[in-house]
Amino acid sequence: MIKLLAKLLRVLNSETQPGQISLGFCFAMIIGLTPLLSLHNLLVLLLVFIFRVNLAAFFMGLALFTGIAYLLDPLFHQLGLAVLTALSLESLWTSLYQSVWWRLEHFNNSIVMGSLVFSIGLFVPTLLLLNLLIRRYRQHVLAWVHKTKIMQVFKASKLYETYQTLSAWRNV
């Protein structure tokens, strides 16, 4: 837990661009919230590896969203069912239903559809919000935090020592 927190701080405090961190987190949101063994997750994984997104942020986000996905299942089910049974979309789903790849994607499942719509819907807002928050954090909070007494104490603690060790390893 300490190492995870240290990693988070390290990522936030590093020179990594905010966009890379938030993109990793948002990709993790899609894979974490939707059923893992889905065809679209293979595509997301490809994007995660090809784009220079922050992998630490991705894996942390994956752990977080996988954990809360199960709690959101009833919401996903309701949302997916509403989308799949919407009369205006019936012809679209019927045409996709004829396609092998879409059937393999299992789009006609309420939880797959619900969680996918939910995570894609939140993708851009989350990306922008995280970008903003990381920038604000670095501009205002980080400088202030460094000056606080708590941070002074923290810097003298074992946690900070671990953080420093990790930083040293990374620099090797």
Partner: peptide, 21 residues
């Protein structure tokens, strides 16, 4: 006869079936 919903299972959702060509 159109979209038909199978009984949902906890954590597995429900499959909606559409008319096939």
């Amino acid at each position: 006869t159109g979209p038909e919903v199978h009984k949902p299972l906890r954590g597995k959702g429900a499959d909606v079936h559409f008319k096939e060509a």
